[in-house]
């Protein structure tokens, strides 16, 4: 567990500079140097008056198991929501009426969020879970178009 700072909450009281035993908080970037931060120390977390510093775990829990029935029900919805997003995006590209485009844009954003939410609940909550790694690996194992960003996928697999 090491500390990170939410710069949106930080009110620059800078008690973290004072209490940190290793000087990990003494950076210009506004972030805490993870290589110096002592795992589980939390002196800065407890000192911060704005609750802008918190600990993030080095290991997250395993992905919650999803039954096939649940996945199937959620994937029916993700299919519908992504089709709706697609229709809305098409309207934004083909209409010459700014108000129609504006409404369609809002609908496309909403449908993207709705699709993301059901997919996340279909077994892809955590980026470092085995499900996500399997998904990325499946992209490498199946034939892809020439412009497919293989390197991006390989990089992700190596650092997740």
């Amino acid at each position: 567990m090491h500390a990170v700072r939410n710069i949106r909450l930080c009110t620059k009281d800078c008690l973290c500079l004072y209490v940190c035993p290793t000087g990990a908080t003494d950076t210009e970037s506004g972030q805490i140097d993870a290589t110096k931060c002592l795992s589980g120390c939390r002196a800065c977390v407890d000192a911060c008056p704005s609750h802008a510093i918190f600990l993030i775990p080095d290991e997250y829990p395993l992905q919650q198991k999803k039954t096939n029935d649940v996945k199937k029900a959620l994937l029916t919805l993700s299919e519908s929501k992504t089709r709706q997003e697609q229709l809305a995006l098409t309207i934004t590209k083909t209409s010459d009426d700014p108000i129609v485009r504006q409404l369609a844009q809002a609908l496309s954003i909403s449908n993207r969020l709705l699709a993301e939410d059901v997919l996340r609940e279909a077994g892809y909550m955590l980026p470092q879970s085995q499900n996500v790694k399997d998904f990325l690996q499946s992209l490498l194992d199946t034939p892809q178009p020439e412009d497919f960003p293989i390197k991006t996928v390989e990089k992700l697999l190596s650092i997740l």
Binding site: P61, L62, Q63, Q64, K65, K66, L75, Q130, D134, F135
Partner: peptide, 10 residues
């Protein structure tokens, strides 16, 4: 919670 390597989608 799932063990590793569950088939991820149907």
């Amino acid at each position: 919670f799932s063990e590793e390597g569950e088939a991820s989608t149907l």
